[in-house]
Design a protein around this nucleic acid. Structure first.
Length: 1005
DNA sequence: GCAAGGTC
């Protein structure tokens, strides 16, 4: 029997379609990726008995990206991304193993029927599926067709069966138009993003964005927000005047009348009208009218409308609302939440979902009445042919769903009930009056039948005072006519709901991607969400949009997306060649890009107004290891910082500037310059710049000049000046001891510049720093150190304070160390700004401190201060905090475990010896004579912090007390032993965690 | 580290 493979776009659809086609007689199993299911049944296909295998993908199988080497931002000119840089298709989600899954299921099948969504993206996924399965399927017999496309407009029995009966072919042109869209978005987005990020990165101190992105959807989205901001800024309030009349309706009730002219902008004119009316005693009824009006029930709910209401009425952001809706969908409470359709197909069973709600505690009465009296057909909406409108599928209560899920579900259900309810009918009464020559009127509404507003009470017709019964010619006494002075008010910032409407109107994004774009501009710090979910652009967002307007307004206008879409549609319709359209559009954007690059100074001028140049920001803190000048400590949003120690204002700017301007190293010029030989082909001599204390056998090391032929960094060329900086680290050489040689060669040279005059020893007199205002500033936002001389920026760890660490230097690069601290009772560790940004060892990670550094002899490193494996986490090591005295602490260098110990010790050192029981390093402690806990007059004791009976009493482990063997009682200390993670058994001299040993062996052994 | 489009 032949096999027909059928593939839908998502697992839920595969199940629904299989259930319809098999009439419920299918067997289901999970596929190898654990996400997609396979539903099997037998039936007939082209008049023959066959076995059907219905399964699905999960959206796109493949994604487009540049070849790996073009993803290196420092080595590729962004302009190359427009044409030279080749792209490749990669699996969109490698964890799903989709290609393999399709091939396993497709192997040996004879036909494939593609049930992907009926839009361009679905057509594109058809070919992704075919690329995977065709090579493993059985060969066609004698010209028989293998590939079929099912086209359906809703997931109903009739539609699905009709689609199966009229199978067609996938549309290659539509798929190609998506390929082109993917390539355009990738090339344009990445080129602009990389260029402007690199251009502005590190240029301004308080520019708090590490990524300045550009995209054909996100940029116009931001544009809408800034456009509203500009309107608010340029708004000039105007004064206007209004006449308000009050008449006596009966003895104790008066009516406020609205002026037919509404308002006038000329005070004298308004005064004239007031003079003409205020002396009148009577208001004459000129006309009365009564009209029956209807307030229409809502259209069926689609995604965008759901997101709008979620934001404006439920206070839920679009991204969050979508996540909540997806959860409700996967739990079976609502139908598929991503749909553009607001129209129920004729065959849709509306009573079924309604019956589900007939016993609901909140709306049972309304639902039962509708079921009994007959439902109203929903209004005719838009049928996008994707999925039915969002519909509640089963009843649920607040207790069942909880919180926000309930609020969203409640809205969806009330909306659904409203769509099958009747319109709200009300009577609108109007009375027109004349007071002197001027006309006034008043209006009242009376509800005839509430209709859908019963289930959506917030939509109710506002109850107004009932009007007196009167006829034409009646007169009412005028109680008062007065003139009110008012002012026009500016618009408010865009609400998310308004932004969604604008995006939908201009075709920016899709129902599924609109929340993503809005989320993007928030996360990139271009806008912030304010109260009422209004989007206020930040300085960065405003400068970017104004910059685009200044250089090339099309980059931010919403028309750019629709213009590209028009080109893509030509491909989809088969009216244009996809390569030609792609080439033509890329050429236009390439020209735009080059013009943008040439004109970037225009945007930079705007940046300068809003942001402070890095060189003028921050406070001098520590010395650079390259030029030995002071680097500035910069906090985003800083400026006038507060001193963390005193709480007072940080050092005045003027004195700091004078301090920063001092020469780097006053003694450097007087010292004779030491020179060494370059081992490179030129064999020239260069300054010997420092000595290293790497290990006993190492001696001075020398750096070669980047100009040596053959010393270029791979891939560099004179045409790519941005690569020149890395030339300096190429082909460097050390005189190291034999074990070290070859391990450190490329890594440890970066602190040295061979440019004459830029080398120097540490030393000289440090300028007097105002101690009370040492820049120890609270770190709420990303902070960094900037060397204005070298024009380098080093980011620092967050969520703590940073201060200078005793003017100590890193032995690897001569940078002064800084101390990161999370608070007085928390963790602290020293770190080298350079090592933290440019890890010196292969096993080192970015952003780490000396407590994770595997330097063999540096007194601040893990090797020297590590005690033993963390009691809580797998990879961490407990490290002595050398700055924590007199309340000494050891803290894990990975997790939050902290052990407090030895409150009365004035010196604690990590010994070279280890504990015989648990292999942890012994601590050598000198206690305060007066408060020593030791027996007798003893002040010094060496022991294991975990096993030693004296120390055990003094140690208080936070977080993980029960994990340690010492808390489990005697005789149960088998386990892994304390020393795992620090040093190997039988090698007491090797001061290193066990698991680190294997990694370090690569360097040293 | 980048886009936008699917979907989980």
């Amino acid at each position: 029997m032949r096999t027909v493979l059928m593939v839908a776009e998502k697992p839920s659809l595969a199940q629904s379609i299989a259930r319809i086609l098999s009439r419920g007689s299918m067997s289901s199993r999970k596929g190898l990726n654990g996400t997609c299911s396979v539903h099997e049944y037998t039936g007939t296909f082209a008049g023959q008995p066959v076995r059907f295998k219905m399964t699905s993908v999960c959206g796109h199988v493949m994604t487009l990206d540049f070849l790996g080497k073009y993803n290196k931002w420092d080595k590729v000119d962004p302009a190359e991304l427009f044409s030279q840089a080749p792209t490749e298709k990669k699996e969109a989600n490698p964890k799903l193993n989709m290609v393999k899954f399709l091939q396993v299921e497709g192997r040996g099948c004879d036909h494939v029927v593609l049930w992907l969504d009926c839009d361009k993206e679905g057509e594109n996924i058809c070919f992704e599926v075919l690329d995977a399965v065709l090579p493993v399927m059985n060969q066609a017999h004698g010209g028989e067709k293998t590939v079929f496309r099912a086209r359906f407009s809703s997931i109903t029995d009739t539609d699905i069966c009709a689609a199966m009966a009229r199978l067609g072919e996938p549309d290659h042109n539509e798929a190609l138009s998506v390929d082109a869209r993917q390539e355009l978005d990738l090339r344009i987005g990445c080129a602009f993003t990389r260029f402007q990020t690199k251009y502005f990165q590190g240029k301004y101190g308080n520019l708090d964005s590490s990524l300045i992105s550009f995209g054909p959807c996100q940029t116009p989205t931001l544009g809408f927000c800034v456009e509203r901001h500009d309107k608010i800024q340029s708004f000039k309030p105007e004064t206007y005047w209004v006449l308000q009349a009050k008449v006596d309706a009966d003895k104790d009730r008066s009516l406020l009348l609205d002026w037919d002219r509404v308002r006038v902008f000329d005070r004298e004119i308004a005064q004239m009208f007031l003079n003409m009316t205020r002396l009148e005693k009577e208001a004459q009824v000129e006309a009365t009218s009564k009209k029956e009006k209807a307030k229409q029930r809502p259209l069926a709910l689609n995604t965008v409308e759901m997101l709008r209401v979620a934001s404006s009425s439920l206070g839920m952001g679009p991204q969050h609302a979508m996540q909540t809706a997806e959860r409700l969908y996967t739990q079976g409470y609502i139908s598929y939440p991503r749909t553009e359709t607001t129209h129920y197909p004729e065959s849709f069973d509306l009573r079924g979902p309604l019956r589900q709600q007939a016993n609901h505690p909140c709306w049972a009465d309304t639902v039962r009445r509708l079921l009994a009296e007959g439902i109203n057909r929903p209004r005719k909406g838009h049928d996008a042919g994707d999925h039915p409108p969002i519909t509640p599928m089963k009843s649920a209560t607040e207790a069942e769903l909880g919180g926000e899920a309930w609020r969203l579900y409640e809205y969806i259900t009330r909306h659904f009930i409203a769509t099958v309810s009747h319109d709200c009918r009300y009577l609108q009464s109007t009375i027109s009056f004349r007071i002197g020559p001027e006309r006034f009127s008043c209006t009242g509404k009376t509800v005839i039948s509430p209709g859908f507003t019963e289930i959506m009470p917030w939509q109710s017709v506002a109850l107004e005072e009932s009007l007196p019964t009167c006829q034409r010619g009646d007169t009412l006494a005028v109680a008062e006519v007065k003139m009110l002075e008012k002012q026009t008010s500016p618009p408010d910032y865009l609400t998310e709901a308004e932004l969604i409407t604008l995006m939908e109107k201009h075709g920016i994004g899709t129902d599924a991607s609109i929340p993503v774009h809005i989320n993007n501009i928030c996360q990139r710090n271009y806008v912030v969400v304010e109260s009422g979910r209004r989007l206020k652009p930040t300085n960065l967002g405003i400068v970017l949009v104004h910059g685009y307007y200044k250089i090339d307004a099309e980059l931010v206008q919403p028309t750019i997306r629709s213009a590209v879409e028009r080109q893509l549609n030509l491909i989809a319709q088969g009216r244009a060649d996809h390569r030609q359209v792609l080439g033509h559009t890329l050429d236009i954007f390439k020209r735009k890009f080059h013009y943008f690059v040439d004109s970037i100074a225009g945007m930079d001028e705007l940046m300068e107004v809003s942001f402070s140049p890095l060189a003028a920001t921050g406070k001098p803190l520590s010395r650079c290891g390259k030029c030995h000048r002071f680097m500035k400590f910069i906090q985003v949003g800083g400026g006038g910082g507060r001193c963390a120690q005193t709480g007072g204002p940080a050092t005045p700017r003027a004195s700091l500037q004078a301090w920063a301007a001092m020469p780097a190293d006053p003694t450097a010029a007087r010292r004779p310059q030491q020179r060494g030989s370059c081992p490179g082909p030129l064999a020239s001599t260069f300054p010997v710049v420092t000595r290293t204390n790497l290990c006993a056998g190492s001696s001075a090391f020398v750096r070669v000049c980047g100009e040596c032929p053959g010393t270029r960094w791979p891939g560099s060329s004179p045409e790519r000046p941005w690569q020149r900086s890395v030339l300096q680290v190429a082909h460097s050489h050390f005189a190291l001891c034999v074990p070290c040689y070859g391990r450190y060669t490329l890594r440890l040279t970066r602190h040295v510049s061979c440019v004459p005059g830029r080398t120097g020893w540490a030393g000289g007199s440090r300028p007097q720093q105002p101690r009370a205002h040492t820049p120890t500033l609270p770190q709420a936002k990303p902070s960094r150190l900037h060397c204005s001389h070298c024009d380098e920026t080093y980011t620092l760890p967050q969520n703590g304070t940073i201060k200078l660490y005793k003017e100590l230097r890193c032995p690897l690069d001569d940078f002064e160390l800084v101390l990161w601290s999370s608070g007085s009772r928390g963790k602290s560790y020293p770190l080298c700004p350079y090592c933290s940004n440019h890890p010196p060892f292969r096993d080192a990670k970015k952003g780490t401190g000396c407590n994770e550094c595997s330097h063999p002899t540096c007194p601040h490193s893990l090797s020297m201060l590590g005690i033993g494996q963390c009691v809580e986490c797998e990879s961490g090591v407990l490290v002595l905090d050398p700055t924590s005295g007199p309340k000494w602490r050891v803290a894990c260098n990975r997790c939050s475990v902290v052990a407090h110990c030895f409150e009365n010790a004035h010196r604690v050192r990590v010994s070279a010896d280890t504990c015989g029981a648990c292999e942890a390093a012994l601590l050598d402690v000198d206690f305060n004579k007066a408060k020593s806990p030791l027996p007798g007059d003893g002040t010094q004791h060496t022991g294991c912090v975990f096993c030693d009976p004296i120390f055990q009493e003094l140690v208080e482990l936070k977080h993980a007390a029960s994990c340690h063997p010492m808390h489990r009682g005697p005789g149960r200390r088998q386990g892994r032993g304390r020393g795992r993670g620090r040093r190997p058994a039988g090698k007491p001299g090797a001061r290193r965690p066990k698991d680190k040993m294997s990694a370090l062996a690569a360097y040293f052994v």
